[in-house]
Design a protein around this nucleic acid. Structure first.
Length: 662
DNA sequence: ACTAGTGTAAACATAC
DNA sequence: GGTATGTTTACACTAG
């Protein structure tokens, strides 16, 4: 029941969820806050509006920017709407990124839309584009902000000098440090901001994208530190340096974040009515986690400062702690540096992996950067980010194919996401295990709904255990352990889990000594899904054409699964056939590749078109694993040759599920 | 329009 | 009686 309460906070209006229609239904959960926000927003913001001039704190600035992001999206929608209503009005730009917005939706006032709604209306690529624009904008603002700060400092300095009172170096140093600290804070806030957006479902995690702008800062920061540390260097100079660095940073970041694709700077800063964006709702995000009472360094009741972990009952206490224990001193500064290095290392690592991925994809003739026919510029951005990243395959996978699709599943609407999303991922066959393997950390920490069906998740959970059986409670635990998302709406998803267990024949309840455990009947599981993909000419076509980069990618991932999945040790993705047999779990979601049954020897007859091999693979593997089912053998993990062995062909059928059930 | 798959909500039964 | 676990039904949504 505490669980219940937790869930309640999220879906404030469970009732009527279905009835009201998708939009409201979906939004309700998240927007319990969102709605409130809009309401309150009108009232509140004025304060934030007060322009920087040094008055705006980093946090405020962030909020402001976040607001703007939403605003831009809204504005975008408005444009779309107006475009629809008045055909003559549509400019070229609009057509370029043409969003197919349902008229009914388009008629809504964009300003009334919640992030989730926007997410539903805009395809992930579109959102992506918006966000990128916004990020560019944000960086500009950051730059301005720091320029102002710099000017202020400079001014102060001059004043003091004029007063004939050369400020002690230490004082200057302190200022500078404070400044730098602020910079760090900005970074954190920015990061949090991105995370928030992502959580709101406005962005699917796009590592490169997320790291892009952020990446530049940390890289430049060391220079700042150096500047600071440089003995004998006048503080003033270093300050200037900072300014320069920032400028450079912002510039590069901007160019990075705002690729050619999009139109001009966007006049989105102001609302249709000319009102500055700032004046709109303060922040929808507040509806979610980003409550005013949160702090990037505070979580789960403890201080997140590296190496600290001091318990703090509430934010107030934490703030106090932060100010006393982590004030601006040598130690903190050093820790900051260390943290920066950590980040840098990770970024370097990411860059390397990205590069490798690019090379691999290039080798496989998949051109990540190649623009897709359908989704114009916007998609491109999505695609671009994709390769780099750790990715969110499902998301992008789905996106390119149908322009009009529902909100990015990958990004997964956090709350009350529609069924469709998950399904699509399923269809695209992204192997859950590989996806999970790759994004394990992401799902674990980000409050993003995993793009898999409950059934596939449950199955994954069960198959991940050595004996391939779990109690309901263990399944729950797996969910919460693996996905941050499932740490929230407990009542809802637990119910769904139970529902799925009962509903699907593929889940078999077995009475155990300890009680009842659930197992998976692979055959049933496979049966569930019609082998559409197998023969679907359209799919094949899509895959081949590269139109559906995502789909390709999915298969690519499938092939890659082994390599990426920790447990699986793969002999080489080059040989799909073997791979297939190897991937014990990865199958899953795959959409079905295929007919489970006649696995007769799939070995020889390659009747599937090339692109599909991945699917085929999965199919087989499933059976294999199914078969051995109860085998003590390490399920997925163990690289047990036995399972992976030659077997792909074998008969899975023989084995009765019954036995597992026993 | 129909169907299948899925998600969500809820009522109910049963066991501990 | 409360809770966890299962089962079942209903409804909504999306895609084929």
């Amino acid at each position: 029941m505490m669980v219940e309460s937790a869930s309640e906070t999220i879906r404030s209006a469970p009732s009527g969820q279905n009835g009201v229609g998708s939009l409201s239904g979906q939004a309700d959960g998240s927007s319990g806050g969102a709605t409130g926000t809009t309401a309150s927003g009108t009232g509140r913001e004025v304060t934030t509006g007060a322009d920087s001039n040094g008055e705006m704190s980093p946090a405020e600035l962030l909020h402001f920017q976040q607001q703007q992001a939403l605003q831009v999206a809204r504005q975008f929608l408005l444009q779309q709407a107006s475009g629809l209503s008045s055909p003559g009005n549509n400019d070229s730009k609009q057509s370029a990124s043409a969003v197919q917005v349902p008229v009914s939706v388009a008629m809504m006032s964009p300003q009334m839309l919640t992030p989730q709604q926007m997410q539903q209306i805009l395809s992930p690529p579109q959102l992506q584009a918006l966000l990128q624009q916004q990020q560019a904008l944000m960086l500009q603002q950051l730059q301005e902000y720091y320029k102002k700060q710099q000017e202020q400092l400079h001014l102060q300095l001059l004043t003091q000098q004029q007063a004939g009172k050369p400020q002690p170096k230490e004082a200057l140093g302190n200022k500078q440090l404070a400044f730098q600290q602020q910079l760090l804070q900005m970074q954190q806030l920015q990061q949090q901001h991105l995370l928030n957006l992502q959580r709101q479902g406005l962005v699917s995690l796009q590592p490169n994208q997320a790291s892009g702008p952020l990446q530049t800062l940390p890289q430049d920061l060391p220079q700042l530190w150096k500047g600071e540390g440089a003995p004998g260097q006048p503080a003033e100079d270093s300050v200037k340096q900072e300014g320069l660095d920032l400028t450079g940073t912002a510039a590069t970041a901007t160019s990075f974040a705002a690729p050619p694709k999009v139109s001009p700077p966007l006049s989105h800063h102001t609302l249709p009515n000319g009102q500055p964006t700032v004046l709109t709702s303060r922040r929808d995000s507040s509806s979610h986690e980003e409550t005013p009472g949160s702090h990037p360094l505070y979580g789960h009741g403890e201080c997140k400062w590296p190496g600290c972990e001091t318990l703090c009952e509430d934010l107030g206490q934490f703030i106090k702690h932060l100010n006393t224990e982590h004030a601006l001193d040598d130690r903190s500064t050093a820790q900051c540096r260390v943290q920066m290095q950590v980040v840098q290392q990770l970024e370097i690592q990411l860059a390397k992996e990205s590069e490798r991925l690019q090379a691999m994809m290039a080798h496989l003739h998949m051109r990540p950067s190649e623009p897709k026919p359908f989704s114009q510029p916007v998609t491109v951005s999505a695609a671009d980010s994709f390769p780099d990243g750790l990715v969110h395959p499902p998301t992008s996978a789905a996106a390119p194919v149908t322009p009009l699709r529902p909100p990015g599943l990958g990004s997964a609407s956090l709350h009350g996401g529609g069924p469709a999303r998950r399904r699509s991922s399923d269809k695209f066959c992204s192997p859950i295990s590989s996806e999970l393997a790759q994004n394990h950390e992401f799902y674990k920490n980000a409050d993003v709904r995993p793009p898999f069906t409950y059934a596939s998740l449950i199955r994954q959970a069960i198959l991940e255990t050595p004996d391939r059986q779990l109690t309901l409670n263990e399944i729950y635990n797996w969910f919460t352990r693996m996905f941050a998302y499932f740490r929230r709406n407990t009542a809802t998803w637990k119910n769904a889990v139970r529902h799925n267990l009962s509903l699907h024949k593929c889940f078999v309840r077995v009475e155990n000594v300890k009680g009842a455990v659930w197992t998976v009947d692979e055959r049933e599981y496979q049966k569930r899904r019609p082998p559409k993909m197998t023969g679907s000419p359209t799919l094949v076509k899509n895959m081949i054409s590269g139109l559906s980069y995502g789909a390709l990618n999915a298969s690519y991932q499938a092939a890659l699964a082994e390599s990426s999945f920790p447990l699986l040790n793969s002999p080489g993705m080059l040989n799909p056939g073997s791979a297939s047999s190897l991937l014990p779990l990865s199958h899953d979601d795959v959409g079905a590749p295929v007919e489970p049954l006649p696995s007769n020897g799939s070995s020889s007859p390659p009747r599937l078109s090339p692109p599909q091999y991945s699917h085929q693979v999965q199919v087989k593997e499933e059976p294999a694993e199914a078969e051995e089912d109860r085998q003590p053998g390490p399920p997925l993990g163990a690289p047990n040759p036995s399972a992976s062995g030659p077997p792909e062909d074998r008969d899975l059928e023989e084995e009765l599920p019954g036995e597992e059930l026993s």
